[in-house]
């Protein structure tokens, strides 16, 4: 955890507790990449344990893994950093199954991890691009609630989009 903190500045540690009781000890610089944690630290100081009743330990762990990687990569000042982050982000979202992806997205949204939300929403968006309507419904577990004929009418209006 303290691999990058070879400098003399002391790194403060925060305790984060997930809904299922799992706790994580994280460097402040890592945890404050999440807007919600950053606000709590600024308002109340970082002495206390921070409880996160809406996030399960599995997904909190994944969110923190992402934060750690980005916090570490950002401390190196070379220019290829963006590339490294991009490559790492790609790997991070590549093999996520849909259920994990959704839960992770909700966790990131709840913790106001703006950059991570961007990354994950972009991933879900890429699952929609170029897909047929039926495939999109399947992906999002949505049942059509249109009245008979209504869907055909909308399709007809934009027939070019279905070619």
């Amino acid at each position: 955890m303290s691999s990058s903190s070879t400098t003399t500045t002391t790194t403060r540690l925060l305790m984060l507790k997930a809904s299922d009781g799992v706790t994580f000890e994280v460097e402040e610089a890592v945890a404050t990449k999440l807007g919600a944690i950053n606000n709590m630290v600024e308002e109340e100081g970082s002495e206390d344990l921070i409880c996160l009743p809406n996030v399960n330990g599995k997904f909190l762990g994944m969110v923190l893994e992402w934060c750690k990687k980005h916090a570490n990569n950002n401390t190196n000042s070379d220019k290829g950093n963006d590339e490294v982050n991009k490559w790492w982000d790609k790997e991070f979202v590549m093999d996520l199954d849909q259920n994990t992806l959704y839960h992770l997205l909700m966790a990131a949204d709840y913790l106001s991890g703006t950059e991570l939300v961007d990354l994950l929403t972009e991933k879900v968006a890429s699952m929609i691009r170029g897909k047929k309507v039926e495939e999109i419904r399947e992906t999002f577990k949505i049942k059509s609630d249109f009245l008979p004929g209504q869907e055909e009418e909308i399709r007809k209006k934009n027939s070019w989009a279905f070619e």
């Binding site: 929609i128 691009r129 047929k132 419904r137 059509s144 869907e151 989009a161 279905f162």
Partner: peptide
């Protein structure tokens, strides 16, 4: 998520529900 899509995909999405 939807706001990140291109216009053509969005026109298809309007048929989902």
């Amino acid at each position: 998520i939807l706001s990140r899509l291109d216009a053509k995909s969005l026109m298809r999405c309007s048929c989902v529900c």
